[in-house]
Amino acid sequence: MNTAMTTGALRLRRVPGKYLPVVVTGCLLVAMFATGGIRYEGFATGQVILNVFIDNAFLLVVAVGMTFVILTGGIDLSVGSVVALSTMIAASLMEGPGWPPYLVVPLVLAVGSGLGLVMGYIVHAFDIQPFIVTLAGMFLARGLCYTIGTDSIPITDPTFTVFAQTRIDLFADLWISPSVLLAVAVVVVAAYVLHYTRFGRTVYATGGNEQSALLMGLPVGRTKIAVYTISGFCSALGGVLLSFYMLSGYGLHAVGMELDAIAAVVIGGTLLTGGSGFLLGTVLGVLVLGLIQTIISFEGTLSSWWTKIFIGMLLFVFIVLQRLFSARSRR
């Protein structure tokens, strides 16, 4: 009884250390929301937060995949292009030959996963920096978009349009889109996998110290291939969600989205060197990015480039914070 209580107390005391970056991001989010609520009329409603989810469901899904990759100490620059390629494949197959969505969606997911698998395999088998491999993947996927078509292809498939327009009513006039449900499901499953499976542990161990993970007999190579495959899958799923949102396929969709995803993960407190971070942080990171956009649009007079400026400043703050944090824990 007594020992149980002391260990309980000790566990509580530790919480700030490991979760500190996530807690900081959470506080920031609350502060931003409060500021918005004070400055603008009609800001402090639940729907504003839900709209952030609705507008960024695809980014959230992509950032989940990115979190896996970054936790192993890697990076995936191809995600934005894979998202665009996914919208392109989906739109062209449904509009051209008129394939049904239940064939198109699995195909898109398979293509995304396959691309990730190949990149992961190259990273592992040839021991090449993920930066350069996924950079190649980024060009490849973006280029493939234009072999399908150079113009935007509108999606008129009824299943897609219904999915895009459906509102799921919550209590008190609040609503979300089906995409949000999907994104949340992805987050929950991913969080479980990361936290409660041997695979998840290996992801953290690989990012924390790859050499020691190898000397413990952990399947480092398999894990690295798997995280890029997961990231490819998430990008493809993100692409499907984006085509619900945009109702079109276009080679210029999601330009630079890989950087948004990386920014969300880093702002969420995940160490870019790997081994430390949480999916909850990534969710908060996406919300922070989305809320910045919302505030800019409420402000009205500021151009949308201010979003980038704020994201830039936030990133600076967070990477410095992380450096201080990791320097302390290494000592």
Binding site: T197, R198, R201, S212, M216, G217, L218, G275, S276
Partner: peptide
């Protein structure tokens, strides 16, 4: 060692198989 990880997860890292059932820890 994985220096940025806690004692518990460092101890379990190599023998996690014995602490997991079908992949779930």
């Amino acid at each position: 060692l994985n220096l940025i990880e806690d004692i518990k997860r460092n101890i379990s890292a190599a023998g996690l198989k014995g602490l997991a059932k079908r992949g779930w820890v």
